[in-house]
Design a protein around this nucleic acid. Sequence first.
DNA 1: TCTGTCAATT
Length: 616
Amino acid sequence: MACANKLLSPIHFRPIPFSVQNSLLFAKVSHTHLNNEHFPPKTLSALTTDLIKSYFDKGSIQEAHTLFDEMSHRDVVTWTAMITGNISCNRHSRAWTMFSDMLRHGVRPNAFTVSAVLKACKSLNLVALSCGKLVHGLAIKIGTRGSSIYVDNALMDMYATCCDSMHDARTVFDDIVMKNAVSWTTLITGYTHRGDAYGGLRVFRQMFLEEGELSPFSFSIAVRACASIGSGILGKQVHAAVINHGFEPNLPVMNSILDMYCRCRLASEAKQLFSEMTKKDTITWNTLIAGFETLDSKESLCIFSQMVSEGFSPNCFTFTSVVAACSNLAVLHCGQQLHGEIVHRGLDNNLVLSNALIDMYAKCGNVADSLKIFSEMPSTNLVSWTSMMIGYGAHGHGKEAVELFNEMVRSGIKPDKIVFMAVLSACSHAGLVDEGLRYFRLMTSYYNVAPDRDIYGCVVDLLGRAGRLKEAFQLIENMPFKPDESIWVSLLGACKAHKEPSMGKLVASRVLDMKSNRAGTYVLLSNIYAAEGKWDDFASLRKLMRGMRNKKEAGRSWIELKNQVYSFVVGDKSVSSNELVSEVLELLIMHMKDVGYGPDLDCFVHDMEDETLIKT
DNA sequence: TCTGTCAATT
């Protein structure tokens, strides 16, 4: 057997044309077969199927097809090997045509064929359901449905993954008499991936109640479901179940629990689990670094250097997270060092990573380098263009952002909602009001993208910033959905900036109607009253705020000095021990006064109670 | 005797 496999290795025949090669092969197979008495009685067709499979394993798709075409007798197994081979090479539509060819040749599919072809249906999203239903009918007709757990599970998976057919998946599931671990996992995954985490968790619980077969897969998907709804309480329960059922040695399960703690913003739980994990791989580190990128960017950079010093090799996932951490912290030097390391490791061709670098340079104030990366990318996607446009917008280059948008459309990329937000925001910051409004109209009339609350927020900002407050007000009043607090607050800020007290009062009444619990809203309102000298109203609002025990989150600043990053808030005493920071700030303030910049004192209110300045 | 279903990181 082993000797036959060695003999059949396609590498030996590489330089010889296919047909000759295959005749040679048959000769050798028959020869071995006839001359070796101890050789198991494998048919020629079985041996050829072996070879077809090994061709697909090596990615030699054409050779597999040539060999198949030259066969005189093809049985179900050979056809099935061709279908699965094409699927493993991601050629799903070819797999489907192979299947229809098979039916045309009058070969009756078996359970192997049906489950394989269902997988192809799943991946052919557009025509999936009609193909899938056809196979479902066929499965019933030839009697594989209900008699093969593989067919039933594949059928469930097909219904769950394609279109909105969780109902059909559930029907198939309920009909299965002997459910196995895959049946349970497939159904839980179906609900969870469709965004119905509670549905997934209900099935997970049912699995325990009915004493279904447990597997690490069902645990990791259940953990994922908890993470997606941000429920640390449910996540901890699943974590306990993982320990109770002895799945702790399974690394993917533990990695997903780590991810869950990060997504539920339970930083200390994540840290503790990480320190207790005896086995760790690159994914473990990446999960923690990605988690801390949003929780505590500075910490995520520390974890990164720890990862490197412990001898783990960072990959493109790792670098994407740490580059994003640098964007959040606006630490250019650190970002540049990482960029160097990325080039050194040959990861600079990675699309997602390049997009992160574009964003990093823009957020660190270096939009020219963003453009350099963008223009040198071998291929781009929607995110690349959007990141570049956001970078331009943030630096006041509205015109360039608009030009980039037009270029993107010309290159054949279809704009989405986020791109329009980038364009509108760029127009807003550059004062290109009419240009922005034109894109807002084109969005629905030409590009067929439905504007949502966020888009309306951008347009209100665009009009408000330019002082076209009445238009902004009318836009909010005529929105196709109920305005939320933030959109009114945005207009309120514009009223204050343009010193329009009458419009301000009107907007303020709308804001008060929302019965907000956000401190920032009241700070803004109280400032408007204070600026008008309405101290009674001002006082009652401040009282209301104190009752809410809700403080506005302080605006934070960073400064990078001598390879050290200092982060501080207004009135922060923690950095004052470093005289250098205070000195630099003093110098900056003096310089600002010299060039005629005085702070807008209307914007500040002094809170006597906690002795801090609150900036709006 | 050849052919199968499910999971974790940006």
